[in-house]
Write a protein that binds this DNA or RNA. Structure first.
Lengths: 156, 156
DNA sequence: ATGAGTGCAAAGTGTTTGCAACTAT
DNA sequence: ATAGTTGCAAACACTTTGCACTCAT
């Protein structure tokens, strides 16, 4: 059983409705390791469920999110991106986003563990390290210092 | 000489124009320790320069940003927020944002130093830790677990 | 005087909402 | 049968852009 099927099964267990739209969103997210924004999900899911509406995708990812099947990340710029939750993929990671090229990269899940500890002890703030991307400049863009001319996706 | 004046002086040195709008934006940012969004800056700057236009504030913070006088932070939700750059205030910090109440809190500038080091060594990614807020739940909101009912500014 | 800055209107993203029609249970 | 989902249109929040006018230099 692949991750999409597992998601559908989970919907059933939870007594939630299994609709073509939700199936399609799960399948799309299961078929890629990338982080997709609603627009991306729509483009791919529309191939499975032609005529699928953008609003429906927004609502599907929201519901699936509340049910713990899908996770979203806020990059510093541009639309929120989604992927399957760790419960379905068995994999966790954090995110960094390049200010120059806009690419989102996965980084080890434990990267901020110490920081989270320190924050909790000193300020009582409970860090959720995977919810927002860290930002900076990726190796590729950093290697050509005079970059930013033309190739950028969503510069910041 | 306060920070706003210092900013104006810096504009002169750089051969940039000193306009009422830019002056007002600098003054507003100098007069608070908070992080203000364009709307906030406009509301306060409009008291100094009545009729000031929202677009002008957007352009002022952009220019002042490019000149290194103003810094901006991307919270996970809502509008970008601005404050005077470290060069003018002599103070640096990072930001964390509460998912429940939306409040932005300052945290020590060196919080992510080790993480930045590790990232640079392992992936070549150059972290800019102050550019995006970390997210989680603040002490106040964490202390009342059944929160989220009514008081939230911009929940996430 | 001249070029940078401003105001305004308009458009551009990304996202949410209200409501009638539909469908999974 | 009926409550939850969907499609659509419209609104929303935030930001950018084009253009004519003004003002700091």
């Amino acid at each position: 059983m692949d991750a999409a099927e597992a998601g559908v099964a989970r919907l059933r267990v939870l007594g939630e409705r299994v609709t073509p739209a939700r199936r399609a969103v799960l399948r799309v997210l299961a078929e890629t390791a990338d982080h997709l924004c609603v627009e991306d999900v729509l483009a791919r899911a529309d191939l499975i469920v032609p005529g699928l509406h953008r609003t429906t995708v927004y609502r599907a990812v929201e519901t699936l999110g509340e049910l713990g099947l899908v996770t979203h990340v806020h990059p510093a710029h541009g639309p929120v991106v989604y992927h399957l939750a760790a419960g379905l993929t068995g994999e966790t990671h954090l995110h960094v986003r390049c200010r120059r090229c806009g690419a989102i990269q996965d980084v080890p899940a434990d990267l901020l563990d110490e920081v989270a500890d320190r924050l909790a002890r000193t300020t009582g703030f409970q860090l959720q390290p995977d919810h927002a991307a860290l930002t900076g400049v990726c190796r590729t863009c950093g290697d050509r210092p005079n970059a930013g001319t033309g190739a950028a996706i969503r510069p910041a």
